[in-house]
């Protein structure tokens, strides 16, 4: 059995996890979901300077303890080295290097975006490549072809805003709390998706996305209505906006799966939890003989279990990083930026 310790510090969350043989999550600790203050008795203010630094060791201790493992039991340490904020990434990378060096463990450099896709392997034990993955979150909207555990092709991504960002910004203008995605989703369920004809950008034009124009169209619609003194039917706006996003995501995902000749589609990222998207994509996949899978919510957000899962397949393939591994803030999907050991 191979035990991988995963670390993730690319953005808001500090997370550590222990995963066995790439599939069994023994622990998955996410800083925002535990009360570090109470658990460790120290003072961890809400907005601490370089909060990852304060969180990382307690989170690792917690992950090992919950997995019933010690550092000696671990075979390799996998860490997110990009993309993300350089200061945040460096905390995880430095911690992983120190642990690997001190414990004589293999060090694995993991691409955060690839980790999101691999979250599906944790949620679906029999799932294997090839598959097409739709990564859809606040920061990313990408279609990827996974030919094997080690070979990926980025088919297309957004040219401007990510889908999740459009959700949050429309929600803000409608006066909904942050994060707005789930609120739009709930409102949309009670509105007519055909009430307002919002644009479907880049429809039928390859695998690239654009949501900035849609965001502007929705804002213009709301502002114009308010200027005329009309009340905006928030449910209608939410439903019509969500329908425009979902239609484009579904059409391009199905097209990508058919073009790649795969019979499996996997969703990843926070917007994968959107019920409108899940329903529409499930229906479209069923109609095309395609199996659809998506991770549970805890594995859709940033977490270290998905990083450990991705690291396991790199570990197995001999894709080990040297101790010169560094943070790469602008890392692209499928890109490698380290010297292999």
């Amino acid at each position: 059995m191979s035990l991988i310790l995963g670390l993730e510090t690319s953005c808001d969350e500090t997370s550590a996890a222990v995963v066995a043989d790439g599939r069994a999550v023994l622990s998955n600790i996410i800083s925002s979901q535990i009360d570090l203050h109470r658990k460790f008795g120290g003072v961890v203010p809400e907005i601490a300077s370089r909060k990852h630094i304060e969180n990382v060791l307690p989170v690792i201790d917690c992950a090992l303890k919950e997995a019933g493992a010690s550092l000696g039991d671990i075979d390799a340490v996998g860490v997110t080295y990009g993309p993300g904020l350089v200061g945040a990434l460096l905390v995880g990378v430095a911690a992983a290097k120190a642990l690997a060096f001190a414990g004589g463990k293999k060090l694995i450099g993991v691409n955060h975006l690839e980790g999101h896709v691999f979250a599906n392997f944790l949620a679906h034990q029999d799932l294997e490549p090839p598959l097409v993955a739709l990564i859809v979150s606040g920061g990313h909207t990408s279609l990827v072809h996974l030919e094997s555990y080690a070979d990926f092709t980025l088919l297309g991504q957004t040219r401007d805003d990510a889908a999740g960002e459009a959700f949050d910004k429309v929600a803000r203008v409608l006066g909904l709390p942050y994060p707005g995605g789930p609120h739009i989703d709930r409102l949309a369920a009670g509105g007519d998706p055909e009430a307002i004809a919002f644009p479907r950008a880049l429809s039928g034009e390859g695998y690239e996305f654009s949501f900035s124009g849609l965001k502007s169209a929705v804002l213009n619609f709301i502002n114009s209505a308010r200027q005329r003194g009309e009340t905006v039917d928030a449910a209608e706006v939410a439903a019509s906006f969500q329908a425009a996003v979902v239609e484009v995501l579904v059409a391009k995902t199905i097209q990508a799966a058919r073009d790649a000749g795969v019979d499996t589609v996997a969703m990843a990222g926070g917007v994968a939890a959107n019920s409108g998207l899940r329903t529409a994509l499930s229906r479209a996949c069923a109609g095309n003989g395609i199996q659809l899978c998506y991770p549970p919510p805890v594995l859709c957000t940033d977490n270290a279990a998905m990083i450990a899962c991705r690291a396991y397949y790199q570990y197995r393939g001999g894709d080990w990083a040297g101790l010169t591994l560094n943070a790469v803030p602008a890392l692209k999907f499928g890109e490698k930026r380290y010297a292999v050991e």
Partner: peptide
């Protein structure tokens, strides 16, 4: 929101010779 800040940045990046796709950093900061 929607004024065109990211669009102006995309233009500036292109003027600086950036060849990558410049996307909104709202979530990635």
């Amino acid at each position: 929101l929607g004024a065109g800040k990211t669009l102006l940045v995309q233009g500036a990046a292109a003027g600086l010779g950036v060849t990558e796709t410049v996307t909104s950093p709202t979530f990635t900061l």
